[in-house]
């Protein structure tokens, strides 16, 4: 099994840390993992993206131009990466601020209104964990217990009191994600 994922959105949405927690989760599940961020000037105020690969085999190229899954968190990212999803692949997006919705017919499209949900839960900083939960509901590439172990490993000990809030966010994401179009 190899899952090639791009996560993209605004800097500050937790794009890179979402990718990092995925990578840690894969590591907890004894998978080979790679995490390659955009580290350019676009990070400051603009868009950020990260390529995460989870695989049972040695990871070859950490840089790709087509993906099994795209997790897209703003309009620019939808515009840029919708066309880069492999036919039959998966696109998950947050509906907040999206005017031109993804429309391909040859991929599965799911929507998750994680920004709204995070505001409702008054934990805006768990936005990315809600998104992660939504993705894992559709594609359970890593087990929830390994996500929680990965979260624990990636967070410094002084933040461990926030683990339950994050776990709740992941579970909430699993509930609110919904299908827009099937491939």
């Amino acid at each position: 099994m190899t899952e090639e994922i791009i996560v993209a959105g605004f800097g500050g949405q937790g794009v890179l840390s979402l990718g990092k927690i995925l990578a840690y989760s894969g590591m907890m599940q004894d998978m080979e993992v790679s995490w390659f961020p955009s580290y350019g000037p676009e990070m400051r105020g603009g868009t950020a993206n990260v390529t995460v690969i989870l695989s049972n085999d040695r990871v070859s190229s950490p840089v790709l131009n087509e993906y099994d899954t795209a997790i897209l968190l703003n309009q620019q990212s939808v515009d840029k990466f919708e066309s880069k999803v492999k036919p039959g692949g998966l696109l998950v997006y947050d509906g907040n601020g999206i005017n031109n919705h993804p429309s391909r017919k040859d991929i599965s499209i799911y929507r998750i209104d994680a920004a709204d949900e995070a505001a409702k839960m008054s934990t805006t900083r768990t936005f990315n964990m809600i998104v992660l939960g939504g993705y894992l509901k559709i594609k359970p590439v890593v087990k929830l217990e390994n996500v929680l172990a990965g979260l624990k490993k990636s967070l410094p000990a002084r933040y461990h009191h926030l683990l339950p809030v994050n776990e709740e966010a992941v579970r909430r994401g699993m509930e609110i994600v919904y299908e827009v179009a099937e491939a």
Binding site: A23, V33, F36, P37, P62
Partner: peptide, 10 residues
Amino acid sequence: DGLIGQMMEK
């Protein structure tokens, strides 16, 4: 290079 430098792996 910057790719291997910035990339995370096991």
